[in-house]
């Protein structure tokens, strides 16, 4: 995407940023996943945030603070870029979750296939009771 003040970034050359590429696993969730706002309205729940949000925040903090696997500043920069492009139509905190997973896959911290497999396991566990 071309920026509006591109000529200020050096030598009069326009700066071109590559559009982030969608990741198919996450793209499917973006398209078909039900966001908390819809679920809460359907079930009459008044809590503005999904119960998993606090775990997500803790994961982001732990990734930055413990082994520095994903420093806060880098995660936030990636979140800015992804939030304005491929996840722009996703509300919070679902967007934060998608951008975190996207960044972790991009950086090789997790693999898309293993994340997909783990999601299936988690889903079976949560729905087996």
């Amino acid at each position: 995407m071309t920026t509006s003040d591109e000529n200020h970034h050096g030598a009069g050359m326009p700066r071109q940023e590559p559009e982030p590429s969608p990741i198919s696993l996450l793209e499917a969730i973006r398209r078909h996943g039900r966001v908390w706002g819809d679920l809460a309205a359907q079930y009459g729940v008044t809590n503005p945030d999904p119960p998993w949000k606090v775990n997500l925040e803790a994961t982001c903090d732990a990734l930055s603070a413990e082994a520095c696997a994903l420093p806060l500043l880098e995660r936030r920069a990636a979140e800015d870029d992804l939030s304005e492009t491929i996840y722009s139509d996703v509300p919070q905190p679902e967007r934060q979750l998608l951008t975190l997973a996207h960044t972790m896959i991009q950086r090789g911290l997790v693999d898309e296939d293993e994340l997909g497999r783990r999601m299936k396991e988690v889903y079976s566990r949560l729905t087996s009771a």
Binding site: I29, L39, Y43, A69, V110, V122
Partner: peptide, 18 residues
């Protein structure tokens, strides 16, 4: 909410793998 959402599952999967 009596429904497991993809986002809930994704959050748990990311955390467990990490």
């Amino acid at each position: 909410v009596d429904e497991v959402s993809d986002f809930e599952v994704l959050e748990m999967a990311v955390r467990e793998l990490a």
